[in-house]
Design a protein around this nucleic acid. Structure first.
Ligand SMILES: [Mn+2]
Ligand SMILES: [Mn+2]
Ligand SMILES: [Zn+2]
Ligand SMILES: [Zn+2]
Lengths: 143, 143
DNA sequence: ATGCAATTGCAAATCGTTTGCAATAATGGC
DNA sequence: GCCATTATTGCAAACGATTTGCAATTGCAT
């Protein structure tokens, strides 16, 4: 779900198209986002960025995440408790199961649920703009 | 969903059972919770409480919400953007549709979705401890 | 290369929420 | 009912995540 060759986004092109400058901090941050398997938070992105260029500031990470979110290039998730976590947009839609023991995030997708959501909203007189489905659970012994 | 005669919780009994003192602030706050139709946040509960007893503090509202949440007497919702909002527990489980224009919260329930969630978690080797399903939408013209 | 606006790093501000502490009030035993 | 013991309170100060003002730096169009 996270990794599929075709949909790997060209952030630089997206930035250029948005008419913003392609700076060194931005290049580094989108680089990190591009080859990230997980759902890192701002601080984690900052850590990885500093490892590449120690002059990058946390403010810039936050500003860049907000910029990319505005462009629709990344998604922000506010999982229970912790800070916002991010992932690149462009993949197909999916929802998340969070392991409450480890914090691991597992992606899943259910067309059936998506469809039911639409039916429910519709029956209430609404169009869904976006939604959030998060399952919090722990590994069970019986498979 | 919110209002059904039988399940109106007796907070005072719950507090007593938990072995905590039944104080004036707590009595006022649970009173507010008891006859509340909506999903107020701490500040709103504080406002309503102050209208009854101006000496109540916001800290006490927060402390009491945390206490009741720990007892399982209320649920905390972290809808997008805003502060935590609360509602009494004890009713039957339901999820929420948030009107992104007005902030209105509409409750709904889908046994089908609940069941699918369980199947998904199970198939991933997990037991669901709790979950969060929020639809964000706007009123649509065609009904 | 030059100039100007966009972007940065830094520190300080913000927001919702939590916490330390001394004062107050609820409860159980008399 | 009255006390003593503690839990609870109000207040102000701390908190963690995120945002912002500002002066210094940088990208990029000319
Ligand atoms: Mn994901
Ligand atoms: Mn509800
Ligand atoms: Zn979904
Ligand atoms: Zn549900």
């Amino acid at each position: 779900m996270t990794r599929t060759a075709i949909q790997k986004p060209d952030y630089e092109a997206e930035l250029r198209k948005a008419g913003v400058r392609i700076t060194r901090p931005r290049r580094i941050i989108v680089g990190i986002l591009t080859d990230t398997e997980d759902h890192p938070d701002a601080l984690e992105i900052f850590r990885r960025a500093v490892a590449i260029d120690s002059s990058i500031s946390l403010s810039t990470v936050y500003r860049t995440m907000k910029l990319l979110e505005g462009l629709g290039a990344i998604h922000r998730h506010a999982f229970e408790g912790g800070p916002s976590r991010f992932e690149q947009a462009g993949g197909d839609h999916h929802d998340h199961l969070i392991d409450i023991e480890t914090g691991d995030v597992i992606e899943f997708k259910s067309d059936r649920i998506e469809q039911l959501q639409n039916e429910i909203a519709r029956s209430l007189g609404y169009d869904i703009v976006h939604h959030r489905l998060e399952l919090y659970g722990r590994k069970c012994k019986v498979k």
